[in-house]
Design a protein around this nucleic acid. Structure first.
Lengths: 230, 230
DNA sequence: CCTAAAAACGAACGTTCGTGCTATTCTGCC
DNA sequence: GGCAGAATAGCACGAACGTTCGTTTTTAGG
């Protein structure tokens, strides 16, 4: 009946919800998913607490929706552009490059959303923690598949343990994000990029040139709001 | 006058303070430094809120004291035993080994205290964040000096950038802690240990045997309270 | 043993949090 | 253009937070 119409003309509520979540995601990346307070979020969006609250029904559901919204942004900003590259080593390299761009250019104001969220919830069992863990597993799987593809294409040595390599790449990424957030150390990204490149060299079958995919992500900055550098 | 006496016979207040901080450190490693609530801490120690509060004067001071207490434990459990090893490569290796033991055996209930704390406060300027950042810099410096010593002893190639290597080691450690806390993935530690070992092999001048310092830290478990495995 | 100081307590304050109601305003379809 | 239903606002609640204050208990030196 009205399902088609409802889907076509997006109700106002859906638009509000989306607006709220956009703000929520950035707020949460700075203050944490718990520091993300309904009152604060209402003030930031110009809504009333109760009006905003009605969209979600509970704080936990708001947090869950925020995590999912962050996931969508991550997919849009990192996964999708990286998947434009050819399967195998090129895609793996671009996944890394774009991830570093993503973390360094503050796609989320407080650095990598999921690095922050997983640290916050890693000792608190529940739906939120599970969702975050699932998303991180997705990411590790994306890395792993890129590696396996590269192996099948003969670009990476078959002896390499894909899970091991994915773990190491992810650790360097998280380490870089950690150093940037805690110290404001931008060099950490240079170091992490170099470490990943070097690591790929040790297990690649052919040459791995240094600057192969750097020019790629020169589309617009992802956020319009200029960040005045902390 | 009474200074000597006061110093010798430790007043009861100091003992209480220490007891409180011991509990606080473990609570904070699980719930976060903000989740560390005065009421909860009072309940856990069997004190009254106000009685406990008087020891610190403000929540921020309690948090700072907790961070310092965690630092002392870290020094006692990681730095000091590692410094029993010979300067240079042996000490560097033992620093890594013992760190992995420290994180894996839950010296703090919620995994590495400082990994959790730095993620929590990295976007919140203030005294606490500064203190945590200083402590992490201390740790990176300890690693760096161990590397430099190893270079001066001719055990590590002089071309190696000590800061870079320290960064990579730290990233792998944090990555392992992250995977253990979020997924309960114990294998992550095997992977991180292997990665560190392999990384050391690439820059060492001589052989780097696999099991050199594993038998070392077979002193008692550091916490008496058995952790039922999450 | 006595006593001054130190330590711990109990109750309360002012805020802020998440959440539940009820009323009001707005939207989009006939 | 009116009307059902969705969206939002207003208000109040109970709980938990950090903090204060006056009182009571405990401690340790003379």
């Amino acid at each position: 009946m009205k399902t088609a119409a409802t889907k076509a003309r997006r109700a106002k509520g859906d638009r509000s919800r989306q607006t709220i979540l956009e703000v929520a995601v950035h707020l949460a990346s700075v203050e944490g998913l718990d520091g993300l307070t309904i009152g604060r979020l209402a003030a930031e969006t110009g809504m009333s607490k109760s009006g905003l609250f009605a969209h979600f029904g509970s704080k936990e559901d708001l947090q869950l929706a925020t995590v999912d919204a962050a996931r969508s942004i991550f997919i849009e900003q990192v996964i999708r552009p990286a998947f434009e590259a050819k399967k195998g080593l090129p895609r793996l390299r671009r996944l890394c490059e774009i991830w570093f761009d993503y973390a360094q250019n503050h796609v989320f104001r407080g650095g990598c959303f999921f690095a922050a969220a997983s640290a916050e919830f890693d000792s608190r069992p529940g739906r939120i923690r599970d969702r975050i863990a699932d998303i991180m597993k997705e990411w590790l799987e994306v890395l792993r598949w890129a590696i396996v593809d590269a192996q099948e294409a003969g670009q990476i040595n078959l002896k390499v343990d894909a899970i091991q390599l994915a773990f190491e790449i992810n650790a360097l990424e998280i380490g870089a994000n950690w150093a940037l957030q805690l110290f404001g150390d931008k060099q950490a990204f240079t170091r992490a990029r170099a470490a990943v490149l070097e690591r790929l060299r040790t297990c690649a079958t052919g040459r791995v040139s240094a600057r192969a995919s750097l020019k790629v992500n020169r589309r617009r900055q992802t956020r319009s709001t200029k960040q005045p550098r902390r």
